[in-house]
């Protein structure tokens, strides 16, 4: 288990698309450091040969037949949109 010294909070916040204030940055780094110290005890556990649990009760092949059903009317779909025009959601310019 890696020590929390590895926690590059700026990099992680960028991946998470979260702008942090300098205060938040410092506070989270120290608080999460504590959490990661606690979490570090997981490295004690021998997990060799242990399957990971993704679902408590895994079943296979949960699907639906390909039968179309009505969706949302466009007004309902866009009712919560912060900005819309011509039945589309407006976002600030996307710069790649």
């Amino acid at each position: 288990m890696s020590a929390h010294a590895d926690l590059d909070i700026d990099h992680v916040a960028r991946l998470a698309r979260l702008a942090l204030t300098p205060e938040e940055r410092a506070r989270f780094a120290s608080q999460l450091g504590g959490v990661l110290d606690h979490v570090a005890q997981l490295s004690e556990v021998d997990v060799s040969g242990i399957e990971p649990t993704a679902h408590a009760f895994p079943v296979f092949n949960v699907w639906a037949e390909d039968k179309p059903a009505p969706g949302l009317p466009v007004e309902a779909a866009l009712r919560n949109a912060p900005a819309q025009r011509d039945h589309m959601v407006v976002v600030p310019k996307v710069v790649e």
Binding site: K67, P70, L72, V74, V89
Partner: peptide
């Protein structure tokens, strides 16, 4: 080529009016 979407049953179509093929 399916009639409904990958993970919901809204119809798939090309050229439909904007945002008319959605659901939650």
């Amino acid at each position: 080529k399916t009639r409904s979407k990958m993970f919901s049953r809204v119809p798939v179509a090309f050229g439909a009016p904007e945002n008319t093929l959605t659901d939650p």
